[in-house]
Design a protein around this nucleic acid. Structure first.
Length: 285
DNA sequence: CTTTTCTCCTGTATGC
DNA sequence: TGCATACAGGAGAAAA
């Protein structure tokens, strides 16, 4: 599942293969992929024709292509979205949702999404450089302008499970289920501990661990695109072998040997070490 | 206002 | 073998 490191790998691929090129046409397949863009696919295509891609940017799990006139094509990969750079005559994927062709010919850019939890939309960019529809998304842990003490304070003020807060993109963005579990294991904190019951230094260390695990994943995922394929399989690809807890139930913890457990949380799964990350006595949900 | 639950989607794995 | 069910989970709407 694409979280910050995977989306950053995609952004770099788009930056390398698409920035500086002029859009020739856009074809959208099905209505769902543009559901967050009420004017619809015809309008989106019309506004993009002839526009030169100026930049490829990212915040959290969102990425966007900067277009002239303070316009941006915002892309979210959702659960299963991919941006692929391919020859025009390459066979259409069964879940091809949008195709962007360029005035200089091959390659083209495709948005492919099996479950269509992801989507694309056009939006104006605000004075801060962020597309208006995602202005509510908080800075992520790789953002040099992130005010970490302020984030620590916000987390400390929340009366909810700390993992739930980590996953809240309006507090700090880019963290999904995989890296939340990995970071909590590194920090030795059970995700159901009450955020407000943690000390501020321990919350700050947890954020440091999160940043470190994402950086490590990015370094491994960053090697996997070199041709025309913009990889979004970081979670199931190179970094998978480095996962300490996510999906590792029944295997020994690399620190203490206790078997990793799997628990239900927020209608999902959480993975942790029973010894390194003891459950709190009073549950925070 | 804050916090939690529900919903969207489809390929894959599992159970009877 | 076949059918039903569970599961993966990001994000926003809706509910509490």
């Amino acid at each position: 599942m694409p979280e910050l490191p995977e989306v950053e790998v995609v952004r770099r691929g788009v930056e390398a293969h698409v920035v500086g090129r002029r859009v020739d046409d856009v074809e959208v397949y099905g209505a769902r992929v543009t559901r967050r863009y009420p004017p619809g696919p015809m309008d989106l295509a019309a506004r993009m024709r002839g526009a030169t891609v100026v930049d490829a940017r990212r915040r959290g799990k969102y990425l966007w292509l900067v277009l002239p006139d303070d316009l941006a094509l915002v892309v979210h990969l959702g659960m299963s979205g991919q941006l692929l750079v391919e020859r025009h005559d390459a066979m259409a994927e069964s879940h091809l949702r949008a195709r962007f062709t360029f005035a200089d010919g091959d390659p083209e850019l495709r948005f492919v999404d099996q479950r269509t939890f992801g989507g694309i939309l056009l939006a104006d960019v605000g004075p801060d450089g962020i597309p208006l529809p995602i202005a509510h998304i908080a800075r992520d842990l790789l953002d040099p302008d992130l005010d970490q003490p302020a984030v620590v304070k916000r987390i400390h003020e929340r009366s909810s499970a700390v993992k739930r807060v980590l996953l809240d993109q309006q507090v700090v963005s880019g963290i999904g289920n995989i890296y939340a579990d990995e970071a909590l294991w590194r920090a030795g904190i059970h995700g159901e501990r009450l955020a407000s019951a943690l000390t501020k230094p321990s919350i700050s260390r947890l954020l440091d661990h999160t940043r470190e695990v994402m950086t490590a994943a990015l370094e491994q995922g960053g090697t996997s695109f070199d041709s025309l394929y913009v990889n979004v399989n970081g979670a199931s690809g190179y970094f998978e072998r480095s996962l300490e807890v996510y999906g590792q139930q029944g295997r020994p913890c690399s620190r203490c040997g206790t078997l990793i457990r799997r628990e239900a949380f927020m209608n999902r799964s959480s993975f942790s070490c029973p010894r390194c990350q003891p459950r709190p006595r009073r549950l925070a949900r």
